[in-house]
Write a protein that binds this DNA or RNA. Sequence first.
DNA 1: GTCTATATAGGGATAGAC
DNA 2: GTCTATCCCTATATAGAC
Lengths: 203, 203
Amino acid sequence: MAPAEHQSEDTILKAAHKVFLSRGYHGTRMQEIADEAGINKALLHYYFRSKDKIFEAIFLSSFKNFLPQILEILDSDEPFEKKINTFFSKYLDLLIKHPHIPNFIMHEVAHNPEHLQSFFKKHFESKPSKFLRQIKEEMDAGRIEKQDPKQILVSMLALAIFPFAAKPILQIVLEMSEDDFKSFIQERKKFLPEFVMRSLRKI
Amino acid sequence: MAPAEHQSEDTILKAAHKVFLSRGYHGTRMQEIADEAGINKALLHYYFRSKDKIFEAIFLSSFKNFLPQILEILDSDEPFEKKINTFFSKYLDLLIKHPHIPNFIMHEVAHNPEHLQSFFKKHFESKPSKFLRQIKEEMDAGRIEKQDPKQILVSMLALAIFPFAAKPILQIVLEMSEDDFKSFIQERKKFLPEFVMRSLRKI
DNA sequence: GTCTATATAGGGATAGAC
DNA sequence: GTCTATCCCTATATAGAC
């Protein structure tokens, strides 16, 4: 890539990412993206034709960080218990890097569910089918309690994602400062694998 | 209350509730609320002075369904294990009745965290302090594993709330129809208390 | 209390100079 | 490529008749 050529485009995307993720589609003003990027409104339309086009780019890149990367981990060949550890460790790290993604995705998706179906099919065929099968195998082998595998998967996602989506509320209810919250999440990396495995393990 | 007097006001509130919860503050048009209520735009301003005022009313009533009612259950005098059961059973029922509240609250709160602090202090002093103490007591009595009580509380909230916030995504990833999702949630009422208690119980 | 009509502002998008 | 100026539609809000 030529160095200066795409500089503005990247600057715009970074700015747009920041604004869209903190304000949502309808809360975002093109002016604010321009200010954040240190350029003019007109330039936004020069690079991307419309607000919609910029949004699409941001949404796509965000979504890729929200689910597919993680589903891949779940579909790896690691043994079960090891995989639970890897999952929480990697997912929490990812969420620490992009803490606003859960809210952003869930909000936008809830308001355009029609688009999601085709969008999903277009960009990711990855389903957590291998992981769901793996859970079944563990059950059949008598190593974990018989449960609906989907309930387990959704629970794992919930335990990892929810604290980031509900952060401001949790901070108030539990009287946590920013630092408190940070160490709460760090603690959670250790807490969650144990929490889940203790629940699953046959006694 | 006089019968006809407040009819329009109620109609407006019901319509506003529906529109705000499905579209969010910035996605909501006064025109759509008016249409939904079967009245004129101007009438909205006659009853409530501005969009902000209507929103405030809706947000307040929604928030009351999202947290305080549940924190109350947690601060009751029930014994521990019974309380875990009551919590999930009542909370899931509440969320079935108001499935859009989690997304709505979390989205709006994330974008106006400044307001939340004073808002929360004004309307609810209820903190889950009794429940957190109760967890500690169970630990001290040797009935459950020693853990950070806050991690447990947040996990319980996550397990209950997340599926509603992430519903459209889950439906696609797990290939669930509306009916599938409904029964998934019904199943979850039984699944969650066991899931949590198995994890906590000392072995 | 409820309507129609209108004022006013805000924000996405374009024209055109440089 | 980047800017200033401006168009134009949309949305909140108000005025005023009934």
